[in-house]
Simulated scan of single mutants.
Amino acid sequence: MWHGATHAFKDLAMSCVGQFLDFFLKKRKKHINIVVATSGDTGSASIESVRGIKNIDIIVLLPHGRCTKVQELQMTTVIEDNVHVFAVDGTSDELDVPIKNLFADVDFVKKHNLMSTNSVNWARVLVQIAHFFYAYFQSAPTTNGETLPAVEIVVPSGGAGNITAGCIAQKMGLPIRLVAAVNKNDTIHRIVQNGDFSLGDTRTSLASAMDIQEPYNMERIFWLLAESERDNVKLIMEEYNEKKQVKLPQELHRKVSGAMTSCSVTDENILAAIRRCWEENKYLLCPHSAVAVFYHYQQFNAEQSSTRCCFAPASAAKFSEVILKASLTPDVPEEIKALMEKETRSIFLKKDDDWEKSLRDKIEALDQQRQSS
């Protein structure tokens, strides 16, 4: 799924969003400010989709030192006038907080035409539904009967945007069984297994783009599955936002666990899956893809009665450090090697800086500059 401009699955949906925005902004003669927090791949895909577009400024917050060097360079080496990168001393969950605060300020949002291209943006989830239909028809065994056979699709999950698209595909009638595969940041796994929706400390893992403890798209999944009890979802989220923990009602938990199963994978499991896949297939997995493939190996060792597809969301070329840890040789394309020689540009924010104020100041400065030019 990663054969796009930044070697990540988000390129497809993000490129569509960028073109939609360019078309409608030109038509309406408007300008917007995009504000994005990233755990690794979202930032670079967002930048690539809108770089150089006159009617858009994009501000990206990246977790400095918590994504790979290649991921960071894919953001900081873009020197277009409409691209502005903050390298922040914090986790991706922490970076979400000032952005949530900005969007809670309705007057500020309207005044500066703010939007986001994180997976909270519905257009991204909409495009990603296509992933599941494509995967299904690539994987489904041929049958002479009228009933379409089921396919299990294993989805590496962080913010849960992609698996939300899978839930919508299910609702549309696609006969898929979903598996949410997470690293040791296991909020989604705990929700699926026992209805425990609680916040833990964000832990660093080899699958760094999935180092997320607050999968904000789970609210969408709850709403999709709750059906006649959708009013309860608002109460659940209000309780979670206040206490950072809530136990799902029994009926809602039953529906969530009926829509998907889950697994949580350690760093050791990730390295083992990368090695085994290379030994058996001569295919280099990125650590996020390896989370899904480790689940497959577990099931493959036990039984092989169903058709299964594992999503591979990023290229291994972006994670050379992990490939080396697996005692394998990275295969890095020339365009990624070239990043190492490029000029970089970013603004560093320390832990004790006021991140929200920095964002507000930057947005206001950009609008003032644009209005005076």
Rank of each mutant, 00 (worst) to 15 (best):
D11N: 00
F20I: 15
L25P: 06
K27H: 11
A37W: 08
T42S: 10
S49P: 08
I53C: 10
I56E: 06
P63I: 05
G65Y: 01
G65N: 08
N82P: 00
V83P: 08
H84F: 08
V97H: 00
P98W: 05
N101W: 00
A104L: 01
V109S: 10
N113D: 11
N113P: 05
F137P: 09
T143I: 13
G145M: 09
G145D: 04
P149S: 12
S157I: 08
G158K: 11
G159F: 05
N162Y: 06
G166E: 00
K171F: 02
L174P: 04
K184A: 11
N185M: 05
I188K: 02
Q193W: 03
N194P: 04
T202R: 05
D211Y: 04
Q213W: 07
P215K: 00
N217A: 04
R230G: 00
D231N: 12
L235F: 10
M237A: 03
E239R: 12
Y240T: 07
Y240W: 11
K244Q: 12
H253P: 06
G258R: 10
S262H: 03
V265K: 04
D267N: 13
N269R: 02
A272V: 02
K282Y: 13
H288K: 13
F300D: 15
T307L: 10
R308D: 01
C309Y: 15
C310L: 10
A314V: 12
K318V: 12
S320K: 15
V322N: 04
A326M: 06
A326V: 10
L328M: 11
L328P: 07
D331Y: 00
P333T: 09
E334F: 01
R345P: 07
K357W: 03
D361G: 01
E364M: 09
D367W: 14
Q371W: 00
